[in-house]
Design a protein around this nucleic acid. Sequence first.
DNA 1: CTCTGGCACTCCCCCTGCGAGAGTGCCAGA
DNA 2: TCTGGCACTCTCGCAGGGGGAGTGCCAGAG
Lengths: 358, 358
Amino acid sequence: MAVRHELSGLDLDPRAREVLHEIVMQHIASGEAIGSRTLAKCGRFDLSPASLRNVMADLEDLGYLQQPHTSAGRIPTDLGYRFFIDHLMKSRALSVRDREVIDDQVGHANAIDQVLHLASSILSKLSDQVGVVFMPTLLQFAIRSMDFILVAENKIMCVIVGANGVVVNKVVETRFVFSRDELEKISRYITSEFGGCTLDVVRRRLIRMTEQERAQHDQMLQKTISLGIEAVNDVAPFDHELYVEGAASILNKPEYADTAALRKTFLALQEKEKLIEILETCLSEEGLQILIGSESDFTQIHNFSIVARRYGSTAAPLGMVGIIGPMRMEYARMAPLVDYLGRALSRKIEEDEQEQGT
Amino acid sequence: MAVRHELSGLDLDPRAREVLHEIVMQHIASGEAIGSRTLAKCGRFDLSPASLRNVMADLEDLGYLQQPHTSAGRIPTDLGYRFFIDHLMKSRALSVRDREVIDDQVGHANAIDQVLHLASSILSKLSDQVGVVFMPTLLQFAIRSMDFILVAENKIMCVIVGANGVVVNKVVETRFVFSRDELEKISRYITSEFGGCTLDVVRRRLIRMTEQERAQHDQMLQKTISLGIEAVNDVAPFDHELYVEGAASILNKPEYADTAALRKTFLALQEKEKLIEILETCLSEEGLQILIGSESDFTQIHNFSIVARRYGSTAAPLGMVGIIGPMRMEYARMAPLVDYLGRALSRKIEEDEQEQGT
DNA sequence: CTCTGGCACTCCCCCTGCGAGAGTGCCAGA
DNA sequence: TCTGGCACTCTCGCAGGGGGAGTGCCAGAG
């Protein structure tokens, strides 16, 4: 039995499917537990409450529904939501307005990290959930250029432009003193020498160079290498950016009415490492992903669901974009929303790459 | 009468001052309304509850105390807090640990905007309140250099380094196509030509240049000017940075126990314009500033208090750093905390400036 | 004149009990 | 196989009743 329904989800007869569908939808809309009477009144069934009760009892036995307490209606379990999403849900088409907002905002921004920050807040606004955007470490991506700018005599700002338009910058303090002219030369040298390499490769090659004989004598080369290593080395702490936007949206949700739950949830959203961990595991798979409650440690503890999607070119996935919210959320609307935004970002990134190719 | 107490705050006899002091302190500690009985038990007074009641009634008449309802104890009014802060409070010295944390973190960061972001979160952690750091528009500050870096053919990243080490960068899209070499020349030209000017001046001079005859014929100059204007013009939206950190801290405060108040407060903290407005008005005055409840529109509506301080060199104040919390907060601890952090930031900034001077 | 104890009064808060409402499970009959 | 009926359970909201904390006022003592 268990096997049958894990394989196909078709172990439910059409009527039970209808009932589950209706309960999930009504519960998503109202947030209340749904009783047999309410269900009968919706008009989709030519059955009495009593008959529906039987069906509902069956669904409860199968693990798709649960009762908050005796003599309350039913609400979907994680499994119920999962079945709904896999077999019952009809994604609602994205509204024209939503699509316009996304196209407009994504189209107009320039630097990619700026786009990503924007994306998380667009997502949060359109979904009225918490929006997250994650960009993993850059170490595995090719760089296009590296420039060094004088901030103070021994403080240099390094600007690394990735092959896909990502811009990272940071200020480093150095042992050596540099002039503007020297920095220009170094920028040109490093860019021509290492353009197209991944940061990882750049670092390894630089380190190897320190051991070569020439570097021992040529002071300029020494300075160049030292600066380059500084720049690449410490990129690590800046590497994965995680934007979490719109935490205030959970204040509206009835499931977080009491302050204790609210508190817990806010704190959970601050644990960026946990969020990164879970998004990183999702990164390996293509297409829209939905995680419900008990389907992962993090979401289980906090009764979250996550709807997320990978973005970036197919050849080089860049990161994840998605929303976090209570298990009871409008999946039929969230799914196309996240999907569309993910596609928009990917398109934008590919355009940028082509632009550079010319 | 009113005049007397506005002038000196000394219209209170010593005993009334003692009582007010004790009530404010106890209320800050417990959050409860303080009754005559509780007060008598604290041991600081050789009086019966009945006598204290008389004193308290007087303080209420003068507007320093209020009763949430008949037959409740008293809590301080805004005026009461104000009197407490101006005449009664003894600032508690900052703990060694707190000082170490601040020195350590401020000392180790490099780019100033990075320091500021850090500062707001340090402040929030040490105070268990909401930490805010505000850096107003850069238009009035002198620039040290401007550099342009190729991101894509018609996409240029502009890096503006302020005289006080602030680094702003942004990507602009241009009509013209630039090569790396051209950009290097332009960077050198603009930096030598405009280094030391404020952004405002730079912009005005660039605009004037477009009208000069030479610019009509020299295409390179045209490109330079156009790029310069683009870079300076759009700095405006990026200009004032406001970091608001630790909003979750208000979840612990009993005054925000019910969800409605919590909701309102969270939304209030998102209205960055309002916050900027109020911090901007504070910018003109030196030294620690404390705003309590009704003393400004914003704090009145939300029953906030703000403890803030200007930072930056005395010659060129840079911005505000402070905390926002309920009116009932440990002013005696918050005041030195904010003050010390403000000084630490100022010191750091002055050091950076001197470093550049050499 | 100041301080104090006593007293009546007020108001909040918590606990309790009760009834209404919603929903269930089960059973017998169509 | 479906349906109506019935007894049962559980939540929720509301009213009522102490208990407690605190007040204001007053009269009397120092």
